[in-house]
Each structure stands twice: as structure tokens, then as C-alpha cells.
Design a binder for these strands. Structure first.
Ligand SMILES: [Mn+2]
Ligand SMILES: [Mn+2]
Ligand SMILES: [Zn+2]
Ligand SMILES: [Zn+2]
Lengths: 136, 136
DNA sequence: ATTCAGGTGCAAAACATTTGCATCTGAAGA
DNA sequence: TCTTCAGATGCAAATGTTTTGCACCTGAAT
């Protein structure tokens, strides 16, 4: 619903604009890491500039709305930050499967070995393999 | 030692060339994820082309000599693949600390939740925070 | 209705990385 | 040692992604 979306923007001090709502729309309807170009294609109808999409993605990441996802490819992918999870990525076709596995001890363990950090804000975990389709 | 390095190249069917030895040299003396430009700077003396470095990095990754490391920045970073470990990255200055923590169960747990994969080849884990220096 | 910090479009720039092609070289074999 | 050639390299140009400058526009606060 649009109300949620607007509220989310306002809560982080961002103006509510058609562009931003549309971009968030894409992320909501497409629950997987996507890049600027993909969003651009999805929003062909409403004239929005690719540059605006790039700027919006950066802004959203800074505000904690989006999370950067490493998919080991050319372009920067993002997904909604709300649900913490990790990814299984096919080295062949690039398909991404999301998994909820998350060892909560990871951060603590890592920190216990660290000499340069006092705390850890976040982590990213990606698994790589070849999916069943590509395997066949 | 150069012998090791040459052997490593030959063992994967690559020709032993001054460029390749020099690049491996940089990786050996600098145990952290580095990018093409960094290697280029380090090798200013011996005229080597930046393109060659890019091509070499790709080749080495394919042959399993190097591992791609996601440091959430502009350029592609690599490190010697021989030692499996993970990274703690400062969001401010980009400093990277390596840690040996690795929950071996990670792959198995992930796979147990997957519907699209039969096996996992590798994983990458990165922790993000602000280092003590930047915190101060 | 007024105001203005922040958002957007457009064009151009910046950057990292790749590709085409001619030339060179490592190393295998004679 | 000499020959041979697949693979390695340099150079220039192309690609593709992301950023920046600048003028104009708009959301939202007053
Ligand atoms: Mn997790
Ligand atoms: Mn590990
Ligand atoms: Zn696949
Ligand atoms: Zn730092």
C-alpha cells in the first residue's frame, strides 16, 4: 500500500515524490536484487530519468531503505533492507535464490577475532554454485 | 620464491612470463584484496600495460589462483585464493581486516534450505562496520 | 500563497573494464 | 640450437556503468 511507502520515506526525512514511490513499488513487487537498468525498464511508461534512479538508489541505501547486494556481476544490485537474508547465486545464469539462514553468532565470532574494529554493523553472505537447471 | 610462483603457473597450464610473475609478486607481498590499478602503480618500473593486468586477473581467477573479493566499492578486488578467510571492511576508510573465522556448517545449512541448487562451490562473507581509527 | 531545500532532467564527463588487431614470445618439438 | 605457433601483450578504441554540473521544478513547511 502506498501509505506505508510514503511513511517510510518521510520517516527518514525524504520528500515523497512519484519517482521514489514508483521505484519502491518495483522493489516491493519484485523481491530480489535488481539494478538501475532493470528499474528503468520497468518504469518506461512514466518518464523517469536513469540518472534519477541512480541517485535514488544511493539515497535509499544511505537512509537504510535499501541494501547493496553483491552478485559478482557488472552492475550494482539492491534489495529492500527490511528482511535480513542471504543469497545463493548461480555462476552460470546468475539466478538468485534467497535463504533465511543466518548464524547470529557470526558477527560476534568475527568481532572476537578483530583487532581493528569495536563493532560490526552488518554482514553479507553469498553462496556460489551452479543451479539445477544449468547443471542439467 | 620465484620457483614456487613459476610452478604455480605451469601447474594450471599457463605460460611463465615476467608480467605474470610480477603480478603474483605483488599479491604475495601485499596480503590483502587489491585491484588492477593498485597493481599497475606497484609495477610502474617494468612497463606493463593496464590491459594486461585486467586480462591476467581474469585468467588467474578462472584458473583458481585468485579469488574475487567483494569490498563494496567501485573496482574489482582480488586476493590469492590459497587461504580461505573472510573480511571486515570499514565503511569509512575502506580498510580491510582479514579474519579466519569460517563456520563450516554454513554451506550445508544453506544447501538444506535451497530448492534450486544441488551443491555449493564457494561462499563469501563480509562484515561491515567502522574501524577504531575512523570511530575516533 | 510564498518560499526554498531538495529533487529531477538533460547533456556531458568520468571510470572501470573489455575488445580488436597487429606483434611478440615462451616453450614444445625437431 | 633452431623452428614453430598458440598463447601473451601492447596500443587504441569501444563499451557499459555510474557520476557530475547546472538549470529548472516541486514537495512540504510556514
Ligand atoms: Mn545474515
Ligand atoms: Mn568461509
Ligand atoms: Zn543457473
Ligand atoms: Zn576506517
Amino acid at each position: 500500500m502506498k501509505k506505508d511507502t510514503s511513511a517510510k520515506l518521510m520517516s527518514v526525512g525524504l520528500k515523497v515524490t512519484p519517482n521514489r514511490l514508483a521505484i519502491l513499488e518495483v522493489f516491493s513487487s519484485d523481491c530480489r536484487p535488481i539494478n538501475a537498468e532493470y528499474i528503468f525498464q520497468k518504469l518506461q511508461g512514466q518518464n523517469i530519468n536513469l540518472v534519477t534512479i541512480y541517485r535514488t538508489l544511493s539515497t535509499f541505501e544511505e537512509k537504510g531503505i535499501l541494501r547493496f547486494v553483491n552478485v559478482h556481476t557488472d552492475s550494482a544490485h539492491y534489495e529492500l533492507a527490511e528482511h535480513h537474508h542471504h543469497h545463493l547465486i548461480c555462476k552460470d545464469c546468475g539466478v538468485i535464490e534467497e535463504i533465511s539462514i543466518c548464524n547470529k553468532l557470526l558477527d560476534k565470532d568475527a568481532l572476537s577475532q578483530s583487532k581493528k574494529f569495536n563493532f560490526i554493523e552488518s554482514h553479507s553472505v553469498e553462496f556460489f554454485g551452479v543451479c539445477k537447471k544449468c547443471e542439467a
